[in-house]
Computed example of a mutant assay.
Amino acid sequence: MRGLRLLGALSAAVLLVAGCGSDSADSSGAAGSGSGDASAEAVSGELQVFAAASLKESYEQLASDLKEANPDLAITFQYGASGQLATQIEQGAPADVFSSADEVSMTKLADAGLVEEPKVIAKNVLQIVVPAGNPATIETLADLQNPDLTIVTCAAAAACGKITASLEEQVGYKVASDSQEPDVKSVLQKVSLGEADAGLVYVTDVKSAGDKVEGIDIPEAAELSNSYPIAAVKGAPNAEAATAFIEYVESDAGQKILADHGFLAP
């Protein structure tokens, strides 16, 4: 099993420094339950992972679940809109791994010869998010056409913005969006703070916000799930650690964490 092979390579365990943007935080403890050869060479050095904002909670749990510290490996997560992250990599940002919330952003880098072969690790679907208690009594996607409501959506460059546009095309009408936010977490924040009556985010984002918000399913969105590809960046400063990270995400343990946060199987 791939997860066991990875944990064998990481048998000394891992110290991850997980951050959003330029921030970082330490997480340490005992490694997972996989067994392996204690003499296997452990990965080390610094690893830069550029990941879609909707993966934040899942990836931070991946970090915390590798519980026995290995001070020879440090991982920094840079979260944001997939399109913006792809542009940064295209412009030479020192990333080792790119984990996207859409295939368009990944294909852009693959066509430019900037990443290794991508692999889809999960899928996600849109959901209407409303503040706790649903004060505007929103029931369906059609309700978001009401100009008297304050609606927030993702900007067109973000993966959530692309899938919103596809949804609007499918249903034949547009959401009356008052604000287009740079990424899905910005939409979620405005709704959770009561600054908007509703927004369009992923199921996983609604789940991550707990009792601050409520989610309303969109039947029309079921056929428009986003695929989440991951790939090592070609010429990555730490290619060995990049491979190890990707294998862990693909492992049974990694897939369970993604599923626990609401992601669908790839």
Rank of each mutant, 00 (worst) to 15 (best):
residue 1 M to C: 13
residue 4 L to T: 11
residue 6 L to T: 06
residue 7 L to A: 03
residue 10 L to G: 02
residue 11 S to I: 13
residue 16 L to T: 11
residue 18 A to M: 04
residue 18 A to R: 00
residue 24 S to D: 07
residue 27 S to P: 14
residue 28 S to A: 15
residue 28 S to P: 10
residue 30 A to I: 09
residue 32 G to F: 03
residue 33 S to P: 15
residue 36 G to R: 03
residue 38 A to Q: 14
residue 38 A to D: 13
residue 39 S to A: 08
residue 39 S to F: 06
residue 40 A to D: 09
residue 40 A to W: 07
residue 40 A to R: 06
residue 42 A to W: 01
residue 48 Q to I: 07
residue 51 A to N: 02
residue 51 A to M: 07
residue 52 A to H: 12
residue 58 S to H: 04
residue 60 E to M: 11
residue 63 A to L: 14
residue 71 P to S: 12
residue 73 L to Y: 01
residue 74 A to R: 02
residue 81 A to P: 02
residue 82 S to F: 00
residue 85 L to A: 01
residue 86 A to M: 00
residue 88 Q to S: 07
residue 88 Q to V: 02
residue 88 Q to E: 07
residue 89 I to E: 00
residue 90 E to F: 00
residue 92 G to M: 01
residue 95 A to E: 01
residue 98 F to T: 01
residue 100 S to Y: 02
residue 101 A to D: 04
residue 105 S to Q: 02
residue 105 S to G: 05
residue 106 M to V: 13
residue 107 T to A: 12
residue 107 T to V: 13
residue 108 K to S: 03
residue 109 L to Q: 02
residue 109 L to V: 02
residue 111 D to Q: 13
residue 112 A to M: 12
residue 115 V to Q: 01
residue 116 E to H: 03
residue 119 K to C: 02
residue 126 L to E: 09
residue 127 Q to K: 12
residue 128 I to D: 14
residue 135 P to D: 11
residue 138 I to N: 07
residue 140 T to S: 12
residue 141 L to H: 03
residue 142 A to R: 11
residue 145 Q to P: 05
residue 151 I to M: 10
residue 152 V to P: 03
residue 152 V to G: 03
residue 153 T to A: 11
residue 154 C to S: 12
residue 156 A to M: 15
residue 157 A to Q: 05
residue 164 T to N: 04
residue 167 L to T: 03
residue 169 E to M: 13
residue 172 G to C: 14
residue 173 Y to P: 07
residue 175 V to M: 07
residue 176 A to E: 12
residue 177 S to D: 05
residue 178 D to W: 05
residue 179 S to G: 08
residue 181 E to L: 09
residue 181 E to N: 12
residue 185 K to I: 06
residue 185 K to N: 14
residue 187 V to I: 08
residue 188 L to W: 05
residue 189 Q to R: 09
residue 191 V to H: 10
residue 192 S to A: 11
residue 194 G to R: 12
residue 196 A to K: 03
residue 200 L to R: 04
residue 202 Y to H: 08
residue 203 V to E: 06
residue 206 V to I: 11
residue 209 A to Y: 11
residue 210 G to K: 04
residue 212 K to M: 09
residue 215 G to P: 14
residue 215 G to V: 10
residue 217 D to N: 15
residue 219 P to Q: 15
residue 221 A to M: 15
residue 224 L to D: 07
residue 226 N to C: 14
residue 228 Y to E: 09
residue 230 I to D: 00
residue 230 I to A: 02
residue 232 A to V: 06
residue 232 A to E: 01
residue 233 V to S: 01
residue 234 K to N: 08
residue 236 A to E: 01
residue 239 A to E: 03
residue 240 E to A: 05
residue 241 A to P: 00
residue 242 A to P: 00
residue 250 E to K: 13
residue 251 S to D: 09
residue 251 S to C: 04
residue 251 S to Q: 04
residue 251 S to R: 01
residue 252 D to R: 13
residue 252 D to Y: 09
residue 256 K to H: 13
residue 256 K to M: 14
residue 257 I to R: 01
residue 263 F to E: 02
residue 265 A to I: 10
